[in-house]
Design a protein around this nucleic acid. Structure first.
Lengths: 219, 219
DNA sequence: CACAAATGCTACACCTGTGTAGTAATTACT
DNA sequence: AGTAATTACTACACAGGTGTAGCATTTGTG
């Protein structure tokens, strides 16, 4: 069936033969998995969750759909679930690295300010990790949503504990610690969004000094 | 191939005639428009923005798709745009009704607390209005997103002005008013989300007293 | 260099949603 | 009641995404 001495391919013309698509570089399965997850992440960050599909991911990675199904048996659901695991782990790692290993309890205000600064810088320098988390609480598969909600809830619980301790220790106002923890988380998340959408307008120092300013006037 | 006296078909008749769908009640165009917008809103609140389609809206309203196109020339885009106008207006109206007509500047803390209470009650009693705004900043048509962002920005500007005034008048800490305004908005929105997702856990008083508690300890 | 395993591609059948042309039922008015 | 206008329905052609079976190519190994 192949054309004999067929000139072939060369573009100029001639043959309207439905020439085959050039093969993408062959890549072992586990590397391909990472590539495909990266492609999905790129799409999410650039075009939003709504734009994600097996088709779009395959195109983004420069391969055809069957390749995706070959590596993620469960299709899109499987791929996104795995991606979620990966990103969740990266995010939690980055967060825990921003927390001080051995907190200096003698100066709580300074401790808070330092931690806040580290978190802000982390978010600022890892937009691919944080944008999908901070800028898309909805519109994504329900599973992703509930996963993030779980982490958030977890964080609120920890923060509530810290607050109860901190308020007692530092002598702050008497507050409903849980509600206050929610409020703080809301501010953190919102600052994160500002960082991602208008990084130049809200410099690190500006956000940090608002936090220290507030802390300083809370008595 | 049908069995003659075939039992089948349950219903008395027996005729396998592709019987016509019963006509939906005939309704003048302008009423139909409202009905369809209500149907769309119901879907958004119940199933999320992702579930909205001309087909789904028609089903929800108990009619067929051509009815939708007959009343909204531009199809889905047109319908959602009009719905957005309607909901935006309702939301802004409700907000402005929560604001005091002639603010009593002699007791700013009380003023804030009263206003907060009214806003909370407004959100609590109008979930169909506020859920799509507070619980879905993404995943909706970009147009809706930017519309809401515009209103939010607007609100921040107003709030920034109020803060500058209030801080001077009441004698609070020296703060970056714009950043502080963002922080307050973040808290308001987050409280709104808590109200909508866990109305029983976060009673009105609990949220209000956190606000007054914070205000009272800010010096 | 041959050949087997691993990897990628094409082609198809299916599903869901869009938008429209043509037709049928209902309603309002004489 | 008869009839015209209004409203709703059916049916089709199209577009884009899914998932899979079968074939083609590449690549590692003797």
């Amino acid at each position: 069936m192949t054309a004999y001495g067929s000139p072939v391919t060369a573009s100029p013309t001639g043959a309207e033969k439905p020439r085959r698509r050039p093969y993408a570089a062959r890549v072992p399965a586990d590397v391909r998995r990472e590539q495909l997850m990266d492609a999905a992440l790129t799409i999410i960050v650039r075009d939003g969750y709504a734009a994600v599909s097996v088709d779009a991911i395959a195109k983004e990675a420069g391969v055809t759909r069957p390749v995706v199904y070959g590596v993620f048996e469960g299709g899109l659901r499987d791929l996104l679930g795995t991606l979620l695991d990966r990103q969740q782990e990266r995010a939690l790692t980055q967060l825990s690295e921003a927390l001080p290993p051995e907190p200096d309890l003698s100066d709580p205000d300074r401790l808070v300010a330092e931690t806040a600064r580290k978190m802000i810088e982390t978010v600022r320098s890892n937009p691919m990790v944080w944008q999908p988390i901070l800028l898309a609480p909805v519109g994504m598969p329900a599973e992703a949503r509930s996963r993030i909600d779980g982490d958030r809830e977890n964080f609120v619980v920890q923060l509530t504990g810290l607050l109860e301790l901190g308020l007692a220790l530092r002598g702050g106002p008497v507050l409903d610690a849980e509600v206050a923890a929610h409020a703080i988380l809301a501010i953190l998340e919102h600052f994160g969004r500002l960082l991602l959408t208008e990084p130049d307008r809200f410099e690190t120092d500006r956000l940090v000094s608002t936090i220290t300013g507030l802390l300083g006037s809370l008595k």
